[in-house]
Design a protein around this nucleic acid. Structure first.
Lengths: 290, 290
DNA sequence: CAAAAGCTGTACCAAAAATTTCAAACAAGC
DNA sequence: GCTTGTTTGAAATTTTTGGTACAGCTTTTG
């Protein structure tokens, strides 16, 4: 693995981050301003001083002192900075890889991160594009019910996938690993169904059993696993392996999460016409909170 | 075409669209203003009238006439509209990108991965080492009960953390977000307890309520959030922000997962003396499967 | 090829916004 | 309990900004 000495494009720390770091040194009313700004970042700062002040429940001069303290010569300059930051963020959603030369962070965290990043790169390289596409295709077929499942640890990832995909399309659910909990649901599973299983080493027998039972009934099985492949691979139609070794007593699931998120992103895009109204509906329901 | 009365929730036509449609009816200098605005939409409109005019190569009054023609009562109102439009777009994962590009398969995965990697690097750089260490310290204190919680999507991460940590040490549980499910458990929470909350934008009020209730009872709150900070930050003792913006209609939780795994790794190491026997015991129980 | 209509910019004004001043309220220290 | 240093907001001040009137120019049209 090569260290990236090449790209020297550090993305400037967001003003929000700086505020967070300096939060302790603020006076009470400055803190109110800071919280107010962060809670609607950065839009709260784009209004007038008076508006900002009243929303934060402080006086205009306090707002001015706040922005001065942040190093700006005045409110307009502060606003200009916010606009530029916003524009930069919006125009290049792609992350600019920043060099991690300055290991000022907790060494533990930093080296752990580098290791995880190595896993992600290795994972991407070992995924067959056709396989990925085929899975996207399957998950985008609205006539096929999708069932997520996973083991002790990976179950959380299956839930994560399910919670997103269920908004994008219908007929998405999560099946608990223990046989007692899925035995009776099995009668519903047929040729149209798709089972997405997460399983890494210390492969869990109940998950394997679930997939085998499903496969026997004609369901299509998709497996997200480690490079040594869970036994589920035998009955799986598509296998997406992720590298999981980390400097820890535990394996890292970051690669699985990466694949999961990429799949969700791809499916969302693919089904955008129908997904958009669904997402909007969820949005609306969320806002009716009283 | 017009009168889309059929489609349920049509999102308001962006001002940009309207401008494009009415482009023909504009006077020459209005067209210059329009082109200028559309080419840097909507940021070009957030500056002052004078700035806008000079960039478009026209005079200030022409700009004023332009916005009046669009139906606004004045320049401030025009700007307000732009800001609101922008905010609506940015805050909702919807509309982040209409599915225009046909990037497919592996390229999608690869670029998604690069973006996520950028997030991880940025996340690591912005975590204060002291903060990370302090959290490890807290989670390693076996006398303190640990409660994990999270929102719709982040709840899965909280579960992931819980499933690992509960093996390393005792007194670890997961609290469901809905108030009805934790109201009664609150009486157990006291000064010794630690609440670890996962919450990213579209911050969830029930999770905030849980943390506030816990904090009021003297519990120590640890928050994993995005750089804009969940309102929970107000009551949190420690805050660990992760970068979450990805080329997707959804946010990426990879940074949160990274922090989570690094924490679990650190705590495991810290408590190794007691953790090892526990892990072995779990292993043994697992193998007695008949 | 005029006369009318429509555009556009200069100059000025009014309004609103940012900034500074200053005194009151508050907290910490002696 | 006084003093000193901070913090804060009301009000005054200054600067900036948006808005308007009007005259010159361009284009259209009879």
């Amino acid at each position: 693995m090569k260290s990236d000495s090449s790209v020297p494009h550090v993305d400037p720390p967001s003003l929000a981050e700086r505020i967070r770091l300096e939060m302790d040194s603020f006076t009470p009313s400055e803190k109110r301003a800071a919280h107010m700004l962060l809670s609607h970042y950065p839009f709260a700062g784009l209004d007038t001083v008076a508006e900002f002040a009243s929303r934060a429940g402080i006086s205009a001069p306090s707002v001015l002192r706040f922005v001065t303290r942040l190093g700006f010569s005045g409110f307009p300059e502060f606003q200009k900075h916010l606009r530029e930051e916003l524009e930069a963020q919006l125009l290049s959603p792609l992350a600019k890889a920043s060099p991690s030369d300055k290991t000022h962070g907790a060494p533990a965290l930093a080296s752990f991160a580098e290791s995880v990043i190595g896993n992600l790169r290795a994972t991407v390289e070992n995924i067959a594009p056709a396989e990925f596409d085929a899975v996207v295709e399957l998950l985008s077929d609205q006539r096929r019910p999708i069932h997520f499942t996973g083991g002790r640890f990976t179950g959380a990832l299956a839930r994560y996938a399910e919670s997103h995909l269920r908004i994008v399309r219908s007929h998405v659910d999560y099946i608990e690993g223990q046989p007692v909990l899925w035995r009776d649901r099995m009668i519903e599973i047929g040729k149209k169904d798709v089972i997405v299983a997460f399983d890494i080493r210390r492969y869990q027998e109940d998950v394997t059993a679930l997939c085998e039972a499903g496969a026997k009934q004609g369901a299509t099985v998709i497996l997200l696993t480690d490079p040594w492949l869970s036994p589920i691979a035998r009955v799986a139609r598509h296998v997406l392996p992720a590298h999981i070794v980390a400097p820890s007593n535990w394996d890292s699931s970051a690669g699985l999460l990466l694949i999961t998120e990429a799949l969700v992103a791809a499916v969302t895009k693919r089904l955008w016409e129908t997904a958009k109204p669904r997402m909007e509906a969820v949005e609306r329901l969320r806002n009716e909170k009283p």
